Computed example of a mutant assay.
Amino acid sequence: MTVAAQKRMTLQEYLKYDDGTDTRYELVDGVLVQMGAESTINTLIAVFLIDIFRSIGIPLVQIGIKQKIQVKSRYASARDPDFILHTEESFAAIEGLSEACLKLNDSNPMLVAEVVSPGPESSENYQRDYEQKPIEYADRGIPEYWIIDPDRSLIRVGTLVDDVYQFTEFSGEQLLISPSFISLDLNAAQVLNAGL
């Protein structure tokens, strides 16, 4: 991770920040931190998830990308998940805002998914998605958290139980089981390959 700016920012300044590039940032302890570039498969998986959830009747307004979630953490002030499934209440909290960010006191989405970028377990992106974000999203009370890891060919579906995610791993032809979306008819390989 490279620090994009040294000046400490508030959440409001972060939400309005635009450096004129397509660079993604997260706010870490008041400092902008540049996120790595997304690989092609990562973006294809996010688009594939949109198609899948639309096919089971989820309204487009409940699907979020490029929307932020404020968290309480020593690592970050706000996260930028790859994919969000909103409740009606969480979408209503950001509807019409010029900077879409669910604040701490806003309703939670029903599901957040992160597509892990390649790298060893010691990498910052692995630590963020596997170690930090499960704690942050659980602390918010988000019912379901998916870690989609094309590099390791697995998907971890986390269900919030007693304020901690209990994860089940899926790979290959295993049918994904989502407690929130029992009508999904989808295996891990389909997601990991973005339906290709």
Rank of each mutant, 00 (worst) to 15 (best):
T87I: 03
V191D: 04
I69N: 02
D185T: 04
K103Y: 12
Y25E: 02
L11V: 15
Q190E: 03
Q67C: 10
I84G: 06
V47H: 00
V3R: 06
D185H: 02
L32C: 01
Y137W: 09
D19K: 00
T87F: 08
G195N: 04
Q166L: 14
D51M: 04
T40W: 05
I182Y: 06
Q166M: 10
S55P: 03
D163T: 13
S73D: 14
V116K: 08
R140F: 15
V161R: 13
I58G: 05
Y165S: 05
P118Q: 14
D163I: 14
T159S: 14
D106P: 05
F181E: 04
Y25A: 01
I69W: 05
Q62S: 03
A188V: 13
L154M: 06
D139V: 11
E114Y: 12
L85N: 00
S123I: 13
V47T: 03
Y130M: 14
N105L: 08
E131N: 12
E114N: 12
Q127D: 09
Q6D: 07
L15A: 11
T10H: 07
S107R: 00
E88S: 11
E26G: 12
A5P: 00
F167I: 15
I135G: 09
Y145H: 04
S178D: 13
P134D: 11
L186E: 05
S77C: 14
E144K: 09
L97K: 13
L60D: 10
E144S: 05
E13S: 11
D163L: 07
I155S: 02
D51Y: 06
S123C: 09
D19P: 03
D82R: 08
Q67I: 07
M9W: 04
Y75T: 14
P109N: 02
V61F: 15
L15V: 09
R140I: 13
A93H: 02
L44I: 07
L176W: 02
E124P: 00
G172D: 01
Q166N: 15
K16E: 14
N125C: 10
I182E: 15
E144C: 04
D185P: 09
D19W: 07
